[in-house]
Simulated scan of single mutants.
Amino acid sequence: MLTGKQKRFLRSEAHHLDPIFQVGKGGVSGTMLRQIEEALEARELLKVSILQNNDDDKHDVANQLAEGTSAELVQLIGHTVVLYKPSVNNKRIELPRAK
Score class of each variant (00 low, 15 high):
E67H: 08
S49H: 14
N53K: 14
L33T: 06
G26T: 12
A66P: 14
A42V: 09
I50Y: 05
Q22I: 03
K25A: 09
S49M: 12
G30I: 00
D57Y: 08
D57T: 03
D56N: 14
N54E: 07
L45Q: 03
E67F: 11
N63T: 13
M32I: 10
A39E: 09
A62V: 12
A42P: 00
L46P: 05
T31V: 13
V61K: 06
H59K: 15
Q22G: 04
K25H: 11
M32R: 05
L45P: 06
Q35V: 00
R43T: 01
N63Q: 14
G24W: 08
D57V: 04
V61R: 05
R34E: 11
A62M: 12
Q52H: 15
L40D: 02
A42H: 11
K47I: 04
R43F: 07
G30Y: 00
A62F: 14
Q35L: 09
A39C: 06
N63C: 10
N54T: 07
D57G: 05
Q22R: 05
Q35M: 06
R43N: 12
Q64I: 00
A39P: 06
Q64D: 11
N53D: 15
K47W: 03
D57A: 08
S29L: 05
E37F: 06
L40Q: 01
E37T: 10
